[in-house]
């Protein structure tokens, strides 16, 4: 599984919260790939995913959260996608 966090450069909230969110996701899927993407450097990709607000989280190339999820919301989203990969 691949989780991508798109952030606006200078967003301290995004950077502060990414670590606990990443830890939460890894507890469920230790093999997941976690990327933090500066939206200005990945603008075309962000647009192709339909991202309009920041921060945003995509899972396996699909826009899932249009703002930072809570640990619970991220856990649910990751769990929901696990069976599809087995």
């Amino acid at each position: 599984m691949k989780i991508e966090l798109f952030y606006s450069p200078g967003c301290t909230k995004c950077l502060e919260q990414q670590e606990p969110l990443q830890a939460t996701a890894r507890q469920i899927d230790p093999a997941l790939a976690w990327r933090e993407l500066n939206v200005l450097e990945e603008l075309d990709y962000a647009v192709s995913l339909g991202i309009l607000t920041l921060p945003a989280v995509a899972i396996d190339g699909e826009l899932v959260f249009t703002s930072l999820p809570t640990a619970e919301e991220l856990t649910d989203a990751v769990r929901k996608r696990l069976p599809q990969r087995t």
Binding site: S8, G10, A46, I51, L52, L54
Partner: peptide, 8 residues
């Protein structure tokens, strides 16, 4: 951030 969102 608002300007970047507008650009998106």
């Amino acid at each position: 951030k608002l300007a970047i969102e507008k650009k998106l």
